[in-house]
Simulated scan of single mutants.
Amino acid sequence: MNFKKLISASYTPFKKSDLSLDLEKVETLYNNLLKNGVKGTMICGTTGEGYSLSAKERKILAAEWSSVISDDFDLMIHVGHNSVVDIKELVESAVSLNSAAVVLSPPLFYKPLDIENLIDFLTVCIEGHPETDFYYYHIPSMTGVEFPMIQFLQQLKEKDVNIKGIKYTHEDLDEYSKCLDYQNTSFDMIFGRDELLLNALPLGAKSALGSTYNFMSPIYLKMIDLFENGKFAEAEKIHLEVNKIIDVMVEFGGGVIAGKAMMNLIGLDCGPTRLPLRTLNVQSIENLKSNLEKTKFYEYKNKQLIT
């Protein structure tokens, strides 16, 4: 199998009473990922409501994840923030936990003016840690920062910046392909659009990171297995069914709002979301359940399908 691993974008569990961190749920979430073939997780990212957490909370959450996982399970810690001071503090914490990788995104208010400005920002954030694997989180739909990533990689190479790769959450498959091919794939390009994973496989995607791998990883692994064994029609059939589920998720608020409710529906209670994200009300959850019943969600959810 050429494909190496699925990585989840983990949800942050909150207590219903006061929306504080529900750390007791972390080990349950980890065990679920492990038994369903997921090889790692990124915490405090988009799905994990990272920008709704304080720096202190993010360090506490990362420490809890670090304490429960096995050595062969990759913990990627997102440290994106608007303040360089806080990012450097979060980087120090992540490095001390011996995480597999540290992930950085651009600031969301004072945005970098160009690629050179972005690289200057990242360089300051990661200085002093030459042995750590750093990744850049490219998700322009959320950050509003949309520079050509092939040019970004070229400048990283020229400046010898310690960025190992990109968590690429964008629809531009042509650009993604060019990034994969650049310098004989010297950069690790983790694919981040769950609904386009089958389209990324022929381009050479070796790993993928997303929210739906929290509750449907076995069916994705089956799809990948079918693709790599030349059973393209069967892989495409799964791909279409998975996207029907994702369409419902998008209709009800997307991968964080609806995705968290879907986790709760299958017994992996992650609690509510934090404002400004809205938690689905009772009627919306009933409508979500009804729409999901028209898909294969309950057939696909964490069902061991690979023999």
Rank of each mutant, 00 (worst) to 15 (best):
Y176W: 04
M249S: 10
V26M: 08
L6P: 06
L6M: 09
K5G: 09
L61V: 00
G144F: 00
S217G: 09
L240H: 09
G254I: 01
G267D: 07
G45M: 07
I43L: 13
L226T: 04
I150C: 08
H81R: 07
S93V: 01
L203E: 06
I60F: 01
V84I: 15
M189Y: 04
K25T: 13
K296R: 12
H170V: 01
L221E: 10
A208F: 08
M263W: 03
L53H: 04
I266E: 07
Y182K: 08
F232L: 15
Y213F: 15
E127W: 01
L173N: 12
G80C: 12
K164F: 02
K39R: 14
Y135K: 05
Y51G: 00
K111I: 03
D160Q: 15
K237L: 12
E234R: 13
I190H: 08
G48L: 11
K289P: 06
N2P: 03
Y176M: 13
K303I: 11
M262Y: 01
D247Q: 01
A55G: 11
D120N: 14
K294T: 10
P107D: 14
K167G: 05
E49V: 00
E293P: 09
E116H: 11
L34M: 05
F147L: 11
S96R: 15
S105T: 09
I306A: 07
K222G: 01
E89M: 14
N184M: 07
K289M: 12
M189S: 10
L6N: 07
N243G: 05
N82L: 14
V282S: 15
I87T: 14
G128K: 13
K5A: 15
L265Q: 04
P218F: 04
Q155S: 06
I119A: 09
W65S: 12
N302G: 08
L21R: 13
A63R: 14
F232V: 12
L277I: 03
A205F: 00
F147N: 12
G45F: 03
Y298W: 12
L122T: 06
F191K: 14
R58T: 09
P202K: 12
L221I: 01
D269V: 07
S99Y: 00
D160P: 03
M216E: 07
L19K: 09
E146Q: 12
P272H: 06
K157D: 11
G192L: 10
N32G: 10
A258C: 08
S52K: 11
G254Q: 10
K237T: 03
G255K: 03
S8Q: 06
K231G: 07
P148L: 10
V38H: 09
L61C: 07
S217Q: 06
N291Q: 13
G48A: 11
K5C: 13
T273Q: 09
V103Y: 03
E146Y: 00
D188Q: 12
K231A: 15
T123G: 05
E236M: 11
G40K: 05
K206S: 10
